[in-house]
Simulated scan of single mutants.
Amino acid sequence: MSTENTQKVTETLARLADAADADAVEAIRIEALGKQGWISALLKTLGKMTPEERQEQAPAIQAMRAQVADAIAARKAELEAAELEARLATETLDLTLPAPTSPKGSVHPVSQVMDELAEIFADLGFAVATGPEIEDDWYNFSALNMPESHPARAMHDTFYFPDTAPKGGKMLLRTHTSPVQVRTMLDTVKRNPGGAPVRIIAPGRVYRSDSDATHTPMFHQVEGLVIDKDIHLGHLKWTLETFLKAFFETEDIVLRLRPSYFPFTEPSVEVDVGFEIVDGKRVLGGSGDAPGHGWMELLGSGMVNRRVIEMSGLDPDEWQGFAFGVGVDRLAMLKYGMDDLRAFFDGDTRWLNHYGFSHLDQPTLSAGVGAKA
């Protein structure tokens, strides 16, 4: 190693010892070991040397490079340790303070009510059935005894696709979950040609061309279906009464059944529930005929029409049943005090933070209705 190179190494090591921060160390590293550094330049000269010269000079240059690299690494470690010591001397952490809160999701009221419905009806022996949201008009209308002239088939009420359905007609976004009832009965007959009892609920999304404070183009509905022998209207009333008492968590539920008309049930009944006005708000409970009380229409129901049972491949003289349907969103509004259905689908996180449920402390109906049944 030449005297000049030895002096450069000594100067470099001295500058490293005096370097005040990591930036100064980095500047020295680039000056010595960077692509244009003076030690890198010495290494490049090895290729032009004769084998004898290379054998003599290479070990000295490599030793010089290693000495400077080790000194740079050591000085970096010293500066980092000094910085850490300074931070530890000045910074304090109060371990008694609560941990900062982190963002967390919440369960949408519709999902919460869906879970509650499934839990209640499971206690009553119902299974959950599902079906496609894109239906053909045979399942959505014809199989449910809805004639071609029925207003629900009108273009201004139903979202149609231009595609032709397998059985003729058109494809559409289902207007109710009743097609699931038809599909379930057909599947039951396929598996049991003589027929078998059916007890299902069919929750899901449905679509109608409507939009205001109490209607949206897409909403959620749950329908129930029971098919068995010797079924009558009393079974329907008991089922609905038991369900509503469990869902609203009160025994003070009074129902009124009014004659109505639905193509797929006969007889058909609208179900009203009694309420009273408390602090300007409707509270379910009590007789709707008492002073300060009233009746609120809640759902539609009835005995399954003979024609629907026949279309499903069952003998209506042997098999009877009842069906009912109610809006899941409406149930959520009544139970949890919401007044505008459109807010359910606005995606406003402030609304969801207020009305949503924590996945850790969701209200539960685990007590069920088994004891009452």
Rank of each mutant, 00 (worst) to 15 (best):
A71Y: 02
K76C: 08
T90C: 04
M49Y: 05
Q55G: 12
L84E: 14
E91C: 10
A74I: 05
K76F: 06
E53L: 10
I72C: 04
A66F: 14
A71C: 03
L88K: 10
A81V: 07
A89Q: 09
Q62V: 13
A86M: 02
A60D: 12
K76D: 15
R65M: 09
A60P: 06
V68P: 03
I61F: 00
T96L: 09
R65Y: 03
L97G: 03
E80W: 00
T96G: 07
A99P: 01
A73Y: 01
L84P: 00
A63D: 10
A73F: 03
A71M: 01
R54M: 05
E52G: 04
R75K: 15
T96M: 10
A89P: 00
P51L: 03
P59H: 10
E85V: 05
A81E: 13
P59Q: 02
A63V: 07
A66Q: 13
Q55D: 13
T92C: 06
T96A: 12
R65F: 05
M49P: 02
A89N: 04
P98Q: 05
E80Q: 11
L84N: 07
R87C: 05
A73T: 09
V68R: 02
E56A: 11
P98I: 11
T92M: 15
E85W: 05
A69I: 03
Q55S: 11
A69D: 07
P98M: 03
Q67T: 12
T50R: 02
Q57D: 07
Q55V: 07
A81D: 14
A66Y: 08
A99I: 07
E83L: 15
A73H: 02
L93T: 12
L84C: 07
A86R: 08
A89M: 03
P98S: 02
A89H: 01
A69Q: 00
L79Y: 02
P98K: 07
A99T: 11
E53A: 15
A66H: 14
E80A: 14
P59R: 04
M64D: 10
K76R: 15
E91D: 10
P51M: 01
D70V: 05
E56D: 11
I72H: 01
A82G: 11
